[in-house]
Amino acid sequence: MTKLKLLYVDDEKVNLTNFTIAFRTKYQIYTANSGQKALEIVKNNNDIAIIITDQRMPGMTGVELLQHIKKYNKDAIRIILTAYTEVADIIDSINKGHIYQYIVKPWVENDLLQVLDKASENFLLVRENKRLVQELEEDISERKRMENELRGLYKELQRLSVRLIEAQENERKRISMELHDDIGQNLIALKLQFNNFCFQLESSDKDKRQEAATIINSTLQRTLESTRTICQNLWPVIIEKFGFDLALKEFLDNFSRDYGIDVVLGSIHIQEYFSKHDQHQLYRILQEIVNNIGKHSGTEKIHFDTVNRADSLCIEITDFGCGFDMPDLAESQQEKGCLGLTTIRERVTILGGTIDIQSWREKGTRFTLLLPHSGALSTLP
């Protein structure tokens, strides 16, 4: 057990020697023969537990010394030791020096040892109490910090929930408009064309019948393609049937055709490294990124590169369009209530990966995704 530090101050050298011999086995003893030397020791040792000082010393009394020491060490137990018993000295010791005990010389070793033992217990008790109070204050501070953080997360969750509901409603509205404007109009056209075809059946003009049949076939093909596109956007069934790699290639081919943007694509080997669930998440991430490029970048070409590492997949998507400033984009999305970039980041986080976005005005944008492989997870029960 570490010994407590004790400072003994007395202008008589023999008293310093006798005190050190008597108590050195139990305490780490420091001695000083003047108040000035005692102050230097206290300044260099702020963990002294007990200070015993003679009252009548040349240059500085014991009470004056304890007054000065209190500025540097408030926790030390202070004891006055003197051969004089003037009432004024006792009152000064109590009022100014804040002493723990007043002892009259000559001291008796056993009696002084009992005083020191009690003083040590008192010092350790005060120190432990301070430690507990500090821990309690730290716990309270940490609890308040966590409560504030939880409140912030709750508000963020509420905000995201509202935006999610709005996004769902917007998605329903978009699907409804696509069904009405695309498939609905095609079906109306089919109905009119079919009536015309029926009318041409009664005619002897073979060319007109053939023309009507060709128009009906073309309209049916457009309706079928529109239906497939809507279904693909809602749920990529092709992943279930033919796998992620083929589904991604078909999506990029359709994107290139629909937007007139050249997609420079290397070989794709992704599906074997990810579970089915993660494949769907990754498909949505790439779909969102690429569609945003098609809608907003104004680029004529996209580079789509994939690199499989030992335990992760790196996907880099680069366009050469108008670019943007990240702060402006975040503010714009917040004002419009868009979930685009937020949704992408959240999906990447779900996959345990990271996404880095770099953009330059009039030069283009690069999206870099780094995703840990999860293929082994899909084999677990």
Rank of each mutant, 00 (worst) to 15 (best):
K295V: 03
T354M: 05
Q36A: 15
F244H: 00
I270G: 04
I90A: 07
A310W: 12
S218W: 04
K241G: 05
S203L: 11
L4C: 03
V115Q: 05
W235R: 15
W107D: 02
T229N: 12
Y154H: 15
E40P: 01
M1A: 15
L112E: 04
V237Y: 14
N45P: 04
D54S: 10
I215N: 01
L329D: 04
Q334S: 08
R309H: 15
A32Y: 02
V237R: 06
T25F: 10
K206W: 09
T349L: 07
G294C: 03
L7A: 07
T299E: 06
L265H: 04
E202S: 13
E178T: 13
L39K: 10
L351E: 04
W107L: 11
I21P: 01
E137H: 12
N196A: 00
Q134C: 00
S378C: 06
S161R: 14
D262H: 14
M177A: 14
K295I: 06
L81F: 10
Q287Y: 09
R209C: 01
L224G: 00
Q221W: 04
L201T: 00
V104T: 15
E300N: 11
R172N: 14
Y102H: 02
K301C: 05
E12C: 06
E156Q: 15
P381L: 12
H98K: 12
D117G: 11
L132P: 02
F19T: 07
I285T: 01
I51V: 01
I188A: 14
T342L: 11
T82W: 00
S203T: 08
K96V: 06
T214Y: 09
L150Q: 14
R163L: 14
T61P: 03
A22P: 02
N292F: 02
K208L: 13
Q200S: 03
H296K: 13
T214R: 12
R127F: 02
L164K: 14
L16C: 12
G375Y: 03
M177Y: 10
Q185I: 05
S275N: 09
V104Y: 03
N308A: 11
Q67E: 12
A22H: 05
A49H: 01
N33I: 13
N148F: 07
R78M: 08
D75A: 09
E211R: 09
S226Q: 09
L377I: 11
I215T: 03
A22S: 09
K191F: 03
V63N: 01
R347G: 08
R172L: 08
I261M: 00
L113P: 06
L113I: 13
R172S: 13
E362H: 15
H98L: 09
E121C: 00
N73K: 13
R361K: 15
Y72V: 07
E288Y: 06
